[in-house]
């Protein structure tokens, strides 16, 4: 089962002819992702990594059925690329690009409300259902098929956690990097709802960080409605207030946005929080 993505998901790549787009098209294909086409305006008719390129999604859709799109388009053109995918009614849109303006994301998010479109990102590593398919830039070899769902605001920190899960024998159902921006397509709570209904997922690992209140919102939801064990890790205990720590969304603007406040709130609601990312498998063992 897993969530959002499996080996049958038909994926297109927007920005397929770029350096990152073409490289990761190759990597995704090698992992088993079912890539049916690519889009780069002005490059229609070319072939990249054996994949046919079209000028627009509409043109592509005349030839192929599409379930998902992954966007590698540079910031300057990314907003139009996202709108194009949204207007084409693609059900899963994954935005890898870092640097999408917040107010454009705000409009896009308000537009898709109630439309049955899921956006992951921007500024994210994508998602992977081990042994089936990956959309994005995660290194496939560290993942293992299994029953732990992972949702994370970070990229390499996700790899760190997954690496220790895999080494400890805990495979993953689906792993999603939601992205480091202030406004993102899917927040913790949105994806927890998917994991709740997924039979394959037995427990969920949440990897949060400073800034915003998504962890607190997720905590409330878990307390009230979530039916599986959750283990969390929050990065940024040593981050100073008011400084942006790499991710655009990783900035403490109020007392409740610190790592400490988030950790306290999670623990108060009986959700275990690991002190170190490598402790997560041990805590899972005690929880499951």
């Amino acid at each position: 089962m897993a969530i959002l993505l499996n080996k049958n998901t038909r994926v297109i790549v927007q920005g397929i002819t770029g350096r990152d787009g073409s490289f990761h098209t190759r990597m995704m294909k090698a992992y088993g992702t079912n890539i049916v086409g690519g889009v780069t305006p002005g490059k229609g008719g070319e072939t990249i990594e054996g994949i046919k390129v079209y000028n627009t999604i509409n043109e592509l859709k005349n030839k192929h059925e599409v379930d998902a799109s992954v966007i590698f388009v540079p910031p300057k053109f990314s907003v139009d690329a996202i709108w194009e995918a949204v207007e084409a009614n693609i059900k899963l849109i994954v935005i890898i690009t870092e640097g999408v303006p917040v107010n454009d994301m705000l409009k896009i998010k308000n537009y898709i409300k109630g439309k049955n479109i899921t956006i992951i990102g921007p500024n994210c590593p994508g998602l992977i259902t081990p042994n089936e398919a990956k959309i994005g830039i995660m290194p496939g070899n560290i993942f293992k098929k299994g029953n732990i769902g992972v949702i994370s605001r970070s990229g390499t920190l996700t790899y760190e956690v997954v690496y220790s899960l895999t080494n400890a024998g805990y495979g993953q159902s689906t792993v999603i990097g939601v992205g480091g921006d202030p406004i993102i397509g899917s927040r913790f709570i949105d994806l927890l709802q998917h994991f709740k209904n997924d039979d394959e997922t037995e427990a969920v690992v949440l990897i949060g960080e400073i800034g915003g209140s998504d962890e607190a919102i997720a905590t409330e939801y878990i307390k009230k409605e979530f039916n599986k064990p959750v283990v969390a890790f929050i990065a940024g205990k040593t981050a100073p207030k008011g400084k942006r720590m790499g991710h655009a969304g990783a900035i403490v603007s109020g007392a409740e946005e610190t790592a400490q406040a988030k950790i306290e709130f999670l623990r108060k609601n009986k959700i275990p929080v690991a002190e170190l990312p490598q402790e997560i498998p041990e805590i899972l063992k005690n929880t499951l």
Binding site: S152, S154, G155, T156, E160, I210, K243, M245, G246, H247
Partner: peptide, 24 residues
């Protein structure tokens, strides 16, 4: 460090083991 989240986790771990990070 490569990656912002891992960089923060690294700083936190330094502190956890009794050290002090000089930077992110």
């Amino acid at each position: 460090v490569n990656g912002a989240g891992l960089a923060m986790a690294t700083m936190d771990m330094i502190k956890h083991f009794g050290g002090e990070p000089a930077n992110f």
